[in-house]
Simulated assay, not measured.
Amino acid sequence: MPAPKVLPAKANALDAIFGVRKPVVGVIHLRPLPGAPRYDGEAMSDIFAAAIADAKTLATGGVDGIMIENAGDLPFARPEDIGPESVAGLTAACMAVRGAVDTPIGITFVANGAIPGLAVAKAVGARWVRVNQWANAYVANEGLLNGAAPQAMRYRSQIGARDVAIFADVHVKFGAHAITSDRSISEQATDAEWFDADVLIATGARTGSPTSRKEVDEVREGTNLPVIVGSGLSPDQVPALFATADGAIVGQWLKVDGVWWNPVDPRRVEALMSAVKTMRG
């Protein structure tokens, strides 16, 4: 069944950013930044060096985009509690990566930091931000999180960042979906499109957990936007998921031993991109 036409068609953001079929975005999970509970005083230059090393491995391996995430800042602050030190740290890390590779970059500012993420993206020339809870509400590990879209879209206009695309999760991992349990995933996909996201993400239950083909299909049923896989993609899953998905974000699987805080493994990047190139034809 075709997706409902909730809004006039918009340009395909994946085509505009990456210019290839089925783009793959590799993730850099930053070490803890100043202000985070696990930050132990590590020199910022060492944090940047680790991020640059991962970026070069991803770029050399042929990924189409790189997403930078403050993954080490556990436990994550609620959006209203994200401090200037976190914004400064992520901005500086993104600038270090931008100076090392030509690959398009994007940002995830957890937890659900849509507005800080847009500020960083504008400052560093990032092409997109990933927002885990874009529409409706969700019982996350950080508590009740409201959809960020109304405030974030107004902020994006205010700072002149309309060229920064919104990659929005539809059925976000972690926590509980009790608030929207009476509404299907496809209906929630329609909500995210209605609230002006550019790309929708179908994801697994936790970091690195596989995304099911069923979930990708359900998201696609509710939208005319591009739909990408947001978690757990490995080479053996590429044929099934890329038969329907328009691309993927891959983090944990690309790391040494498949552990998210380890460095990126060049052999894993090569294996995944080989499978993707086969799907591209």
Rank of each mutant, 00 (worst) to 15 (best):
G143I: 11
L90R: 04
W128K: 00
D64C: 06
P34S: 10
G41R: 08
E69Q: 15
K22H: 15
L144F: 14
A36G: 14
E69M: 13
L145H: 09
I52K: 14
A148D: 02
G41P: 08
G147E: 00
A137E: 11
G106M: 05
N136I: 00
F48M: 13
E80A: 14
V131S: 01
T60A: 15
I82P: 06
T103L: 06
I105T: 10
G83M: 10
A51D: 05
V63P: 00
D102Q: 12
T91N: 09
L145S: 07
A92F: 04
A77F: 09
F18T: 02
P34V: 07
N146W: 12
L145N: 06
I115S: 02
A119Q: 11
G125V: 09
P34I: 05
D102S: 15
V24C: 03
I82Q: 11
V101H: 03
L74R: 14
L33P: 01
M44F: 15
R21A: 15
M44I: 11
G89W: 02
E80K: 13
M95F: 12
L118T: 04
I107V: 13
D81E: 15
D102F: 08
S45Y: 03
G117S: 13
V25E: 00
G147F: 01
A121E: 01
G117R: 06
P150M: 09
V27K: 01
A119P: 04
P79R: 03
P23V: 01
V131H: 02
Q133L: 14
D40K: 13
E85N: 13
P116R: 08
A16G: 04
A149Q: 00
A114G: 04
I17H: 01
F109R: 07
D102Y: 03
P34A: 09
N146L: 14
A50C: 10
R78F: 04
V131T: 06
T108I: 12
L118R: 02
V97T: 04
V124S: 06
Q151V: 05
I82Y: 03
N136R: 12
N112V: 04
A96W: 08
A119H: 12
P150G: 10
A93D: 02
I28Y: 07
D81K: 14
T103C: 14
L74I: 15
V20N: 01
Q133A: 13
L33M: 11
T108M: 12
P84D: 10
N132E: 10
P84L: 10
V120C: 04
N70P: 13
A88Y: 07
G41D: 10
N70R: 11
G19R: 06
V97Q: 01
P34Q: 07
D73L: 01
V120A: 06
L118M: 12
N132W: 02
G41S: 12
I47H: 08
G89K: 05
P32M: 11
D81S: 15
F48K: 13
G106A: 07
F48Y: 13
A92G: 09
A55F: 03
D81T: 12
A148K: 03
A140V: 08
L145M: 11
G125H: 09
R31L: 15
A55L: 05
D73V: 02
A135D: 06
A123S: 12
K56N: 09
I82V: 15
Y138M: 08
T91E: 08
V20G: 02
G35E: 08
G26T: 05
D40F: 05
N132C: 05
A135V: 06
A16M: 10
Y138G: 01
R127N: 13
V120M: 05
V20K: 02
